[in-house]
Amino acid sequence: MTYASLEHFRDVTSRNVLALQEAREKGRKVVGQFCIYSPLEIALAAGAVPVSLCGTKQDSIPVAEEVLPRCLCPLIKSSFGFALQDSCPYLAASDIVVADATCDGKKKMYELLAAYKPVMVLQLPQIQDERAHAYWREQYALLVVRLEEDFGVRITEEKLRAAMDLTSRLRQALKKVLDLARRRPSPLRGLDLLDICFRASFMPDYEQAIRLLEAIHAELQDAPAAVAPDAPRILLTGVPTGMGSHKVVQLLEECGASVVCIDNCTCYKKVLLNMEEEGDALD
């Protein structure tokens, strides 16, 4: 069954690259980000457009294996291959890449990526005590300084608060769509959930994204089931997934299962944390 709100969302997001180009023509900078550890809010407070960069397609892997070990994580090879091929419009449009040192493979890839793009690496704390918070906050403070210097802007507390309000509303709108699958049976297939989250991560206009996601929720909250009533309900967790690396979701659904929760940073992990309204913005 087709839904007008979902089709409209896909139509709008099919032009994400064009919308990003138009934003750049209006003078906005672009901040490419590899992980949800990179705060959208700091990029937005700098007047920039944050976009996702994780590689989820295998097309760019062979060229990356000419430089990187073949045994390395395919997500890393896919991401770096896009840089070698200059085949990712979002990476090409990025004025700076904000990268998170989440694993040794990515750390090395970022060193090599710096030959193609300006890179700012956020060093995740390797400790788990009271010092970790202060250390990580300092990484955010360094990112503020870097974007202010590179973009010639001033990131104020007020701008950070406005950005936090915007991203909180975006997370809430996306979570409402994901929560539709809590119904038994779900009105959305797992591939639909993945496609919506993946497309939304490339939208430069967050207010537009919020409106489109709220329209999907409004239309589908009373929609009939998209899967069989007795379909096994699956929670998928692990590494990031996206269109191009969606075969596990597709195989499960072809076997009659219903993927109702994608518990990774593509979907649920990025919508569960709400910002505190009081106190220091970087905290």
Rank of each mutant, 00 (worst) to 15 (best):
Y3I: 11
D11T: 12
T13V: 12
N16P: 04
V17P: 08
V31E: 00
G32P: 02
Q33C: 05
Y37V: 11
S38E: 12
I42N: 00
L44W: 00
A46H: 02
K57C: 15
V63T: 08
E65Y: 10
V67Q: 02
P69V: 11
P74K: 04
P74C: 01
L75G: 10
S78F: 11
F80N: 03
F82A: 03
L84P: 08
Q85L: 13
D86A: 13
L91Y: 07
D95F: 03
A99Y: 06
K106V: 05
L122N: 01
I127V: 13
D129V: 05
R131I: 03
R131V: 06
A132V: 08
Y135R: 09
R146K: 09
E148W: 05
D150Q: 15
D150V: 06
I155L: 00
E157D: 12
E158I: 08
A163P: 01
D165R: 12
L170I: 00
D179T: 09
R189Y: 09
G190N: 15
I196L: 09
F202H: 03
Y206W: 13
E207G: 08
R211W: 05
R211Q: 13
L212S: 01
L213N: 03
H217N: 03
Q221G: 04
P224Q: 11
V227A: 06
V227Q: 07
A228R: 10
R233W: 05
T237W: 04
G242T: 14
K247G: 07
K247L: 14
V248N: 09
V248S: 12
L252A: 12
L252Q: 06
C255E: 15
Y268E: 09
K270H: 00
L273R: 14
G279T: 10
L282D: 01
